[in-house]
Amino acid sequence: MLTAFAVAHLAPTTWLAATPTASTPEPTTGSLIRRGYLAAAVGGAVAAALYGLATGTAVELDYNPYLKWTLGAAIPLTVCAALIAATAPRIAADALPTWLALTRPAVTHAIIAAIGIFLMRAALTLTTPIDLTGMPGLAGSLGAALLGAATALTASRSRMLRTITAPGLAIGYALVFSYDTSSALIVGYLVALTWWGLRLTAQTLRLAFPAVGTALHRLVDRSSG
């Protein structure tokens, strides 16, 4: 799903970067954004479903547990991508660079989380690389620490909050990691990833409908007054 977001972000970014001296027509850029994020919504969900089905086929077990994980993680981001596809083309041309900076996908954080989850699962199932190193406890705690750090980095854009929460969550995840808590730790990261998608959607709506945001601010100011 994040790969689909990255591809959707790449199309309008490349278009704008290729024409630095000319004004980019809004319909052209809007069409790229609409098509890119609509493709991300559909393609990401289909890829998640296929991955769950393929995993069930590989282990020759029921598909439901794997589809629950893959689709459960993908559907919230699918909805976010669909909303972005519908509303982002309304963003004014002068606000597009700001919006594109906000939409950079959290791919690096996802890679850190993926490595962490891989080490956690390897420690619990005693598979590669644990079967070679023979240190399941250390590898599992290291994986949990990476997952905790990725969760903190994904949940916030603030450098200060990241500096404070990333070490704390890394240590906390490492300390509580066990067979019983591993799924909860993964769900914690998926919640942070969903929050990333919701925050991006909210920022898109704010830029696409600036008058609505101004009106809400006025209502809040009047209420507080």
Rank of each mutant, 00 (worst) to 15 (best):
P105V: 06
M120T: 04
S223H: 12
L119C: 01
S141N: 10
L142C: 14
T151G: 00
A58R: 12
L32A: 04
A145Q: 00
S178N: 11
G143E: 08
W15T: 02
T98L: 12
P136H: 09
G30S: 07
L2Q: 01
A95V: 09
L38V: 05
A45F: 11
I84W: 06
T133Y: 14
A82G: 12
A114C: 07
G213R: 12
T29W: 07
G213E: 13
Y179I: 12
F177I: 12
R157I: 04
L207D: 01
A22T: 11
V220D: 08
V191C: 10
A123H: 00
A152R: 04
T28R: 06
V176I: 14
A174F: 07
V107M: 13
V212W: 13
R206Q: 12
A74H: 03
A88F: 08
T163V: 13
Y63H: 15
I112R: 09
W99A: 09
A81H: 03
R121A: 11
W15K: 08
G44L: 07
L38P: 02
V7E: 01
S183I: 12
G148M: 02
A174C: 06
G116K: 00
A152C: 07
L100V: 01
G188Q: 04
S156I: 04
M120L: 10
Y51C: 12
A49E: 09
P20L: 11
P76H: 07
L185C: 02
A40G: 02
M160V: 15
G197T: 01
G140Y: 02
Y66E: 04
A73V: 08
A18L: 14
A155W: 10
A93T: 15
S183F: 09
F5Y: 13
A11D: 03
R90A: 11
A85Q: 01
S158C: 05
G116S: 05
L71H: 04
L132R: 14
T29A: 13
A45S: 10
W196H: 02
P129T: 07
G143W: 01
T204V: 04
L207W: 00
R159A: 12
D94T: 11
A139N: 05
A48E: 00
L53H: 02
L161Y: 02
M160A: 15
R218D: 15
L83N: 02
T87D: 05
V187F: 13
F118R: 07
T21F: 14
F118D: 01
Y189C: 03
Y51M: 15
I130D: 04
G44M: 05
T78M: 13
I84T: 04
I115G: 09
S23M: 11
L16M: 15
V187T: 10
L61S: 14
T19N: 15
L77V: 04
W99Y: 09
A73C: 10
H217V: 01
G43C: 05
T21N: 13
G43A: 10
G213D: 14
I112P: 00
T57W: 14
P105Y: 07
P12I: 07
A150D: 04
L175H: 08
V79P: 02
I112E: 01
V107C: 05
H109S: 14
A92N: 13
L175C: 10
R157P: 00
Y189P: 00
L2I: 01
G36C: 08
A95Q: 15
H109K: 13
I91Y: 05
A18D: 11
V79G: 01
A215S: 14
R218W: 08
T24L: 12
G116H: 09
L50H: 03
L161M: 12
P97D: 03
